[in-house]
Amino acid sequence: MIVFGWLNDQLLKMEWLYNAVLWLVESVFGLSMDGRVGGSLHFFIYDVIKIFILLSVLIFVISYIQSFFPPERTRRILGRYNGVSANILGALLGTITPFCSCSSIPLFIGFTSAGLPIGVTFSFLISSPLVDLASIILLASIFNWKIAIAYVVVGLVLAVLGGTVISKANMEKYVEPFVYGNVLTEAEQDELTVKDRIVIARGQVGEIIHRVWLYILIGVGIGAAIHNWIPEEFISAILGQDNWYSVLVATIIGVPMYADIFGTLPIAEALVLKGVGLGTALSFMMGVTALSLPSMIMLKKVVKTKLLALFFSVVTIGIIIIGYTFNAIGYLFV
């Protein structure tokens, strides 16, 4: 346990980096950590470097694992299951299948054409942006393992229940007709070698960092501002534990926003440090990552408004329930 604790502190929480940045801020810049400028500068430098290091390593490892689970394979696996177990499997596979919002439509069409129930596809679509391996490790780094695991569990439960509700609502008729009855290409692609997988994984690191770096800088910037510049009274007046509507406000702010989970985490971190409830911070994070205007516009091309509205409502209500639950039992996790 001592070894694990040390590894956890140095590799995951990066205490060495915390101390190095502390030295930089105090001795090189001559700023006090208690001052606003010093404190926010430390938050910014430490978080940016930590997130970029963790992200690069994680994306590499995860992309390597993901190269074994292309969507075609996921579709074959899912086709063998029925009922709730298919939803559970869909949610689980959503965490490891490579996926970016720009491929969500071909994926939706491919799954549906193969005869998968749309509820299963939606379980997959909900869990995919919400829970992935990188976000689990980052949550463990910024908060702790208990919170990371709790986040994953509620994220998966939301995906399974959301998909099940959509299954039960008989929404098949609200899918655009062209989605059905397409051919399935099981086109012969060469089996990947270890070298191919490494090349893919390295390519993913470059591609994802290129896509999210700005979100991370903005996210950490907002986090640093919340951490040192916005008065605590102001934040707790809106998002504080005592306000019954704090979760609602966090969800309403989070849903239309579009950012990667990696950019959202530092904001959640700063909010929790300022005394905002864990549930409120999680609602905000889930709102930002699971639902966004661009993904809604894309989904609108393949499903009719009624199904889109059901998807949107189910996920939003789920996020709000998760927020209130965590605020009620949050003391178990800190």
């Binding site: 491929s103 439509i105 071909p106 054409s113 290409t185 086109a187």
Partner: peptide, 26 residues
């Protein structure tokens, strides 16, 4: 167009089609 892309049955874009046959995707 998504409806056109769907007809080729690919689930990861981009795809490359030569003489009507999908030769690469994703």
């Amino acid at each position: 167009d998504y409806a056109q892309i769907a007809k080729y049955g690919i689930m990861s874009t981009p795809g490359l089609v030569i003489d009507g046959k999908v030769v690469s995707f994703g």
